[in-house]
Amino acid sequence: MAVAGGKGGSGKTTTTLGLARALSRRGASVVAADADWDLPNLARLAVETDSDPVESGSPADVRGARSVADAVREAEPIRPDRSEPTVLAAPDSARSVDARATFDALDGVTPEGAPVLLDCPAGASPDVAAPLRAADRALIATPLRRAALRDAAKTAAIARRLDCPPVGAVVIGETSVPDRVAALLDCPVLGRIPDGGGAPLSEREVRDAYDGLARRLTETAAATGWQIA
């Protein structure tokens, strides 16, 4: 599933990690991969918000984290546990890696039935095509601002053209969403994530909101093949 949005700062990375952790809390073996190779920050966010960091788990060590390209090249099955998602970083030399081939091959090294979330580039970026083509469905993340919603609608249209139709949307920074948002994006609003300030994933109400998103997402037809304990 591609986590996509309009412009940068729409909440894609936080949603990718927050949703991945919520699915783990439901007993799923989750893989979250950074697909925004020009502005990669999924692995850094995972380290900075880890409640129980490993010895090497500091922001300075993120650059040496296992990347999605390494995982595909090694061709060894990824074996995520059910307590914490496996997070794959962007490759260090992204421009030397074929993004489309990498994301297509990721399916071959992840367990059958494991949710795989791709943290996408901004919707207007040409680089968004590779993860959208590789994914089965998209989840659209957007703030409730006019310009952001307009860009999110464009991203949803791009996803449909690339045969990655949106399963739903998640609105960032709000607890109340007008009905017309779903009509604009042409997909249901599955989640409303409150504003958690500078460290949203450390806030209980934000984690609870991602738990609710995970529950609603697993009830959709797009997630019927996911294995949840």
Rank of each mutant, 00 (worst) to 15 (best):
A152S: 12
R146H: 15
G18W: 11
K12L: 07
D70R: 13
A65P: 08
I158K: 15
R207V: 04
C164S: 09
L39H: 03
W37H: 02
D98A: 15
V3A: 07
R82W: 09
L132P: 07
A199C: 12
A35Y: 13
C187T: 15
G108C: 02
P200C: 13
R73M: 09
G11A: 04
P111V: 12
L139Q: 14
A223S: 08
P77H: 14
A209C: 13
L88N: 03
V177P: 00
D50S: 15
P77M: 15
A221R: 12
G9A: 03
A229R: 01
P77I: 11
A99Q: 12
P59A: 11
L184W: 04
S202A: 03
D81L: 10
K12T: 05
R25D: 14
M1S: 03
A122K: 06
P91Y: 05
L19K: 09
I228F: 06
D151R: 09
P77Y: 11
E203R: 05
R216P: 11
E74F: 14
S10M: 00
S96V: 08
E84L: 01
D34T: 11
D61V: 04
A99P: 05
E203P: 01
T175M: 03
A159M: 10
E55P: 02
P131Y: 07
S96I: 07
L190P: 00
V181G: 13
S93T: 06
P188K: 08
A101W: 04
A152E: 08
R66F: 09
A33N: 11
L144S: 04
T175S: 05
G225W: 05
G6E: 01
I172F: 00
A223N: 01
P115W: 13
T224Y: 02
A223R: 05
D50T: 10
V170I: 02
T49Q: 10
G27Q: 15
D34E: 15
G196M: 07
A28G: 13
R25Q: 13
S24M: 02
A152K: 08
V109N: 07
R146T: 15
L45D: 01
P200N: 14
L17Y: 05
A209G: 13
T13W: 02
R66A: 14
A183Q: 11
G113C: 10
G6V: 01
D136I: 04
G168A: 05
G27M: 15
S51L: 07
D61Q: 10
V54F: 03
V116Q: 01
D119M: 15
A20E: 08
W226P: 02
T224D: 03
T49N: 08
D104R: 11
R63D: 00
G27P: 14
G57V: 10
G9E: 02
A153F: 00
G198M: 10
C120P: 04
P77E: 14
A221G: 07
A20K: 05
A148W: 09
A69F: 02
A134Y: 03
S58W: 12
D61L: 06
V54P: 00
G108K: 06
S67P: 05
A22W: 07
V128R: 08
A90L: 15
L185P: 06
A90K: 11
R160H: 09
G18M: 10
A124H: 07
A183C: 02
A153D: 05
L185N: 04
R66D: 12
T86I: 03
T102M: 09
A65W: 08
G8K: 05
P77N: 13
G197D: 02
P143A: 09
E84T: 04
E203Y: 01
C120D: 01
D195V: 10
A138I: 12
S10C: 04
L217S: 07
G173W: 01
